[in-house]
Design a protein around this nucleic acid. Structure first.
Lengths: 193, 193
DNA sequence: GTCTATAGATGGATAGAC
DNA sequence: GTCTATCCATCTATAGAC
């Protein structure tokens, strides 16, 4: 046959990727399937050849997005813990990240809606987060610190995005960066003792 | 006249209070005005005697909710910084807070939708947050630390809520509590030097 | 597999009776 | 000020033509 079975899987993946930016930008509940499919140049009818429901799209979005986030961490060129952290703080706690949710981490924009999603979606979320924490644990030497670091970053972007001006957004970002750099460096040093 | 002008303001306030739980639980976009008014025993027609639009309700919800959050902080009985923090960590980073968004802080549940709201709503949000940071600054001695503390707490609840099991939620909460207590105590000590 | 068309429900918001 | 009724848009999801 002309189109092998994996062609359908590829199309499905393409729909997920095209939907992700719109969902992160506008929110899951507020963004209709029509609009999501428009981004891929198809109509909403085509959507249901690839997904059983809108909820299934959200579930599929979770591993896609969290894998991208882990890849970003992996691309950090530093090996020394403090330098690695400094680089990560600059990358995540960035004003561009605040102002462009469509290109950023799914957690600040869709975290609350994942929390309201069905059990299957949250199960996938947990599994993908565990992978991320495992990776971070190897950098930071401690699982507690890994969870805390993630929560801090997510909260900082969430709060900064709710601010009305760039100045206020920078206030939030810079405060977080200053405290985190100082505090984490000291925490890492205490582990090394 | 039988009903003084403030009676209307009181009714408006009552509608806000009755809506708040449903909005935090179900999300702003996903919860209709019909359902919100049902909680007050009126129909959606009555809504528009008190609010010009659904967006105006969200804007009114922000000062109401953030004042409640500040009041909770104020009720902390401790004066010594470390004891104050410990109490606050137990209060906010609590499994009940994770599992009952309708009774908790608006930031983890509605923060992302405030970030997508209009400029007027975000302006009010900023003003109310400044008040909270000012109050926290007096407890922690540092504005950067106040912002960071808030972001950390919000992120922790957001991430914990997205977890599928109570065990996983506790993992997130406990990790944050352990690191925060240790790290903040050390940071406070460094300020005292 | 994607299209058009549409069902069926619900969304925000308005009009007019009381 | 609140009600019922309704407008109109949009939502998720399905049916049938191609």
């Amino acid at each position: 046959m002309r189109y092998p079975p994996e062609h359908k899987a590829e199309k499905r993946q393409a729909l997920i990727e095209a939907s992700s930016a719109l969902l992160k930008q506008g929110g899951y509940a507020a963004t209709g399937i029509d609009k999501l499919m428009e981004a891929s140049g198809v109509t909403s009818g085509a959507f249901y050849s690839h997904f059983g429901s809108k909820a299934e799209l959200l579930q599929a979005l979770v591993p896609h997005e969290l894998e991208l986030s882990r890849n970003a961490w992996e691309s950090n060129p530093h090996t020394e813990p403090t330098a690695w952290l400094e680089f990560e703080l600059e990358r995540y706690l960035n004003i561009k990240h605040v102002r462009h949710p469509e290109a950023g981490c799914m957690l600040p924009s869709l975290g609350a809606e994942i929390a309201r999603a069905n059990a299957a979606t949250r199960k996938v979320f947990e599994e993908e987060m565990e992978k991320g924490v495992l990776m971070l644990e190897q950098k930071l030497g401690n699982a507690d610190l890994a969870w805390t670091f993630i929560c801090q970053l997510v909260g900082a972007i969430l709060v900064a995005r709710a601010m009305p001006t760039k100045a206020a957004q920078l206030t939030v970002l810079d405060a977080n960066k200053r405290i985190l750099l100082e505090s984490l460096t000291r925490t890492l040093a205490s582990f090394a003792e």
